[in-house]
Amino acid sequence: MSADSIKLGGKIKPRVLIKVENLNKSFGDLKVLRNISESIHEGEVVSIIGPSGSGKSTFLRCLNLLERPSSGRVIFEDVDISGKKVDIVKHRQKIGMVFQQFNVFPHLTVTENITLAPTLEKNISKADARRRAHELLERVGLLDKKDEYPSRLSGGQKQRLAIVRALAMNPDVILFDEPTSALDPEMVGEVLDVIRSLAESGMTILIVTHEMGFAREVSDRVFFMDGGAIREQGRPEEIFFHARDPRTAEFLSMVL
């Protein structure tokens, strides 16, 4: 099934948010991404699965130019953001990212973590930013931690903070890079719940994950990556129950 035939809820085909054309990435002699071309539509939830070292994270990091592609283009909202003359800072404000290691700012309180970027880069007043931060914290059940420093938070709380920090910039898409891989098992659920409710609210999401049950449940599409390429992609039930590529089937038989 090609990406263009995706329908989300209604009959209207949503616009393409991110378009990747012939994306290649090498680190020295190591080819990490091979000729990837894909489109992500507005409102879509896409899970990226595959063995470690298959290029999943690098693919995600190329989408907001944390890694610069060796060749190929990344087109976000009709602008080629991989071009040389682009003000990438402006576009990154519309592309949220959540990391495996949380990367919350340890020298700032929970509220300051959230308000830093909006007040500095979007000229939002401190008071408005704080109000919005507290709304977001309420949504993820962290309002009582608003004045704590991150060192007082559990892993799951840090990751929920990282998610609302990204949300505070009002992004059009959020990239999740293995958001639960560094968490103790009992904290995985609380973070997945937040991501699930984001997905249900219509946010466009790309998530690299090893949580197969979650991927099957929330995704509109699943990419299976291996050896730096997207070997197979399709609706979750196609990938998980009717994989055509033998590598996909082999991988799933090992993790399911």
Binding site: R92, I95, M97, A166
Partner: peptide
């Protein structure tokens, strides 16, 4: 990386 991904200037 986190600061950059939020769209903060260098």
């Amino acid at each position: 990386e986190a600061a950059k991904s939020l769209g903060m200037r260098p």
